[in-house]
């Protein structure tokens, strides 16, 4: 792993965003729409349900912000690869002295930056528009957010691996993969509200523990160490598996000439 290589690969993406600021719209526009829709739904529900479930309801706003951290991190990783496909730059990058680790770490950095931009923006707007303060969780927020970021990276690597393996036809996976797991991940509702079979699945998904932990944290102000530990442990496994998948797919791609096919298409 070489610092200057990672720096160069990150720089390539930063140039991209400064060159074509319209890309920033995507970082701001969709998350903002989500926040407005879920925010006003929350306002409406609060008015009509009295005080019975206030925490679960305001948590919808928190869930929007946190889901976006996961989603932007995943997209940072997956779109990074697609940018090279779209600009026919893939061979230049993979014929350069760039290791898998260099490449992956720079996608993580981009994923992190994307998530940081969106989540900060949303967190501030949530305070302004709905007096919802995610930062009430103080420092205990950080390990939760970090876990979301890491899970986003894992999903990003899985998306990229699928795109490398199945070609540009699989491009839509870059957007779809996080939504495969969203129903099981208890983003907007507690795990307990799911049917037992789905609850069983959801316990194996790192981010369901994060969302569950966040809900508890916002309700009682107590950090759910148990959820955090589960999420961290699962995340380590997912990250390792996703990294392994990526490396394996790159090896297959070299055997089958898949990287050169991207150029031809």
């Amino acid at each position: 792993m070489t610092f200057s290589t990672i720096q160069a690969l990150v720089l390539r993406n930063l140039y991209l965003y400064t060159r074509t600021p319209v890309r920033l719209v995507e970082l701001v526009f969709w998350p903002l729409v989500d926040l407005l829709v879920w925010g006003y739904l929350t306002v409406f529900l609060q008015k009509h349900t009295g005080d019975s479930f206030p925490y679960q309801i305001t948590f919808l706003i928190g869930a929007v912000i946190l889901w976006d951290i996961l989603f932007r991190a995943q997209q940072g990783v997956a779109l990074y690869f697609l940018e090279d496909v779209w600009s026919r730059n893939l061979l230049n990058v993979f014929s350069a002295p760039v290791t898998n680790a260099d490449y992956l770490v720079s996608t993580y950095v981009i994923g992190f930056l994307r998530a940081a931009v969106t989540s900060l923006l949303l967190a501030v707007l949530a305070i302004v528009l709905y007096s919802f303060n995610l930062f009430e969780l103080n420092w205990s927020l950080l390990p939760f957010v970090f876990n979301l970021l890491v899970f986003g990276w894992s999903l990003g690597m899985i998306s990229t691996a699928l795109i490398v393996r199945w070609g540009p036809a699989a491009e839509t996976l870059a957007w779809a993969v996080p939504f495969f797991i969203q129903p099981f991940a208890a983003v907007y509702y507690p795990v307990a509200s799911l049917p037992p079979a789905i609850q069983w699945i959801s316990q194996w998904i790192p981010c369901s523990h994060i969302f569950e932990g966040m809900r508890d944290g916002l309700k009682d102000g107590v950090v759910s160490w148990n959820d955090l530990a589960m999420a961290t442990g699962l995340n380590a496994v997912y990250l390792a598996l996703a990294g392994w998948l990526f490396v394996r797919v790159m090896r297959t791609a070299r055997e089958k000439g898949l990287l050169t096919k991207f150029v031809a298409q």
Partner: peptide
């Protein structure tokens, strides 16, 4: 068969 990213400037 390859290009450098078209959305970047030459020096970039």
């Amino acid at each position: 068969y390859t290009q450098l990213p078209g959305n970047l400037r030459v020096w970039q």
